[in-house]
């Protein structure tokens, strides 16, 4: 689970550094880059939203779950 959390965090970092956040303007019906066109902008915007949600919602859940699991296993061993 921690490996998954790390992987998602890495993806998010890459998306953030690549400036994909700006493409979330697809949510208001506009495109960030006219040169890239609506379709590519939409894909990049949706990809960022997906990775962002995974980072803020899924990563903490995975970390928490890993901690709870470790705690459970420790209790069982005792």
């Amino acid at each position: 689970m921690l490996r998954w959390a790390g992987g998602i965090s890495l993806f998010f970092l890459v998306a953030q550094l690549a400036g994909l956040r700006a493409f979330t303007c697809i949510l208001n019906g506009t495109v960030e880059s006219v040169a890239l066109g609506w379709q590519i902008s939409q894909i990049l915007g949706l990809a960022y939203i997906f990775i962002y949600l995974a980072f803020v919602v899924l990563v903490p859940v995975l970390v928490l779950a890993a901690m709870l699991l470790a705690l459970w296993q420790k209790c069982r061993r005792k």
Partner: peptide
């Protein structure tokens, strides 16, 4: 995972 989700979602805000 269910317990972790139940803990995290109300805390996210």
């Amino acid at each position: 995972m269910v317990i972790a989700t139940a803990v995290w979602l109300p805390c996210l805000h």
